[in-house]
């Protein structure tokens, strides 16, 4: 089966950056989740990150927190996340990545989570509160049936980026702002730091997230990465107008358009 890396590489070779979108499972509502997620993929997203709702999402800003809380209030639990993934998997061959905090995964059993998530159709896993330092403690010696994606930031040292890149599978997630999700305060040197990271000759594709919220942002950085990840900007549109799927589709289409060329 094609890896996430190959998927991104194929897109890059076709002349586009990869576009990953994030949508919290069970948001905007339990019933509309699968259709909404699929329409984002149809509108041009190449990778879907399915957010696992958590009570204490400490890397997330108010927008994703709100979506997570709504999902929990809607009764969304891990088993629902797997069900959504199965249903989305039936309708797409694009890459599906689970993004969730450590505790619900630990509570479920890390190995069992991996196995069940893979059979539901997930390809990758991002756990923002399991950094490189705790990777071995968290995953132990289990058979990893998902590609585990790790993150680096503008304050990660070059030595550490090299270590993280070695360990990361799928792609390397570059957090482009010093802040939580939905922060938008790129300093002037975001391109400079992306250039420095890329110059290190990474084994992974470099995907930029946290702080990418518009086609304009993508135009600015697309020369210096392999793809982008957009979350809060999409969730915000759905919080504002949960029924207006067309508006979000158009937004995703505009993001994809910005990725091309």
């Amino acid at each position: 089966m094609q890896t996430i890396h190959t998927h991104i590489d194929t897109i890059n070779k076709s002349g586009s950056k990869a576009l990953a979108v994030f949508l919290t499972a069970g948001f905007p509502s339990a019933d509309t989740y699968v259709d909404t997620a699929c329409s984002l993929l149809d509108a041009g997203a190449d990778i879907l990150e399915i957010g696992i709702p958590f009570s204490d999402p400490l890397a997330d800003g108010p927008i994703i927190q709100q979506s997570s809380q709504l999902a929990l209030d809607n009764g969304i639990r891990l088993k629902d996340v797997f069900t959504y993934c199965e249903q989305i998997r039936e309708r797409t061959s694009k890459k599906l990545v689970a993004m969730g905090y450590a505790n619900p995964i630990l509570s479920y059993g890390v190995e069992k989570f991996m196995t069940d998530a893979a059979s539901a159709g997930f390809d990758g896993l991002i756990v923002p509160d399991v950094p490189y330092d705790e990777y071995e403690n968290f995953y132990g010696q289990i058979n990893k049936s998902l590609e585990t994606i790790l993150l680096v930031t503008p304050v990660t040292t070059p030595e550490r980026i090299a270590l993280v890149d070695k360990k990361s599978k799928g792609f390397l997630y570059y957090v482009s702002v010093a802040g939580i999700t939905g922060t938008h305060s790129w300093s002037g040197d975001v391109i400079g730091s992306l250039q420095r990271v890329r110059a290190m000759g990474l084994q992974n594709k470099l995907m930029v997230g946290f702080g990418v919220s518009s086609a304009g942002d993508i135009h600015k950085i697309k020369g210096h990465c392999d793809g982008v990840i957009v979350g809060s900007a999409i969730i915000k549109r759905l919080l504002d107008e949960p029924q207006n799927i067309k508006r979000v589709e158009e937004f995703v289409a505009s993001l994809k358009q910005a990725c091309v060329g």
Partner: peptide, 19 residues
């Protein structure tokens, strides 16, 4: 590494590793 047996550690977003 900041562990008390299996407990403790640094289960934080990457941004906090440097500080």
């Amino acid at each position: 590494a900041g562990h008390f047996g299996i407990y403790g550690g640094k289960y934080v977003p990457e941004t906090l590793i440097a500080p």
